[in-house]
């Protein structure tokens, strides 16, 4: 029986899927990576580390004005 010819995205998906399934040490590592990324991006970035100039000003002109005032007044 002939095997069906699969598309490239399907083959890439299978490659990663099989790879993840067959991991031993890697499963623990992926758990650590996912927990770490959650802590970094959801907890640390969103709650504690906003990009102040992006958050507080609407345009680059306003941001430049703010930084100019900051650097003049320090």
């Amino acid at each position: 029986m002939m095997r069906p010819i699969r598309s490239l995205p399907a083959r890439i998906w299978t490659f990663y899927y099989d790879g993840f399934r067959s991991m031993t040490v890697g499963k623990t590592l992926w758990a650590i990576i996912l927990i770490k990324l959650f802590i970094f991006f959801v907890v640390i970035k969103m709650l504690f580390f906003p990009n102040l100039l992006q958050r507080d000003f609407d345009s680059d002109e306003e941001r430049a004005d703010h930084v100019r005032q900051e650097l003049i007044s320090r």
Binding site: K36, L37, F40, F49, P50
Partner: peptide
């Protein structure tokens, strides 16, 4: 695996602590 993305925190700090 443990080291990946740790450098991104430096970029977070640029945007918050070192915005000027």
């Amino acid at each position: 695996a443990i080291g990946v993305a740790t450098g991104l925190i430096l970029e977070f700090e640029f945007g918050t602590n070192w915005s000027n």
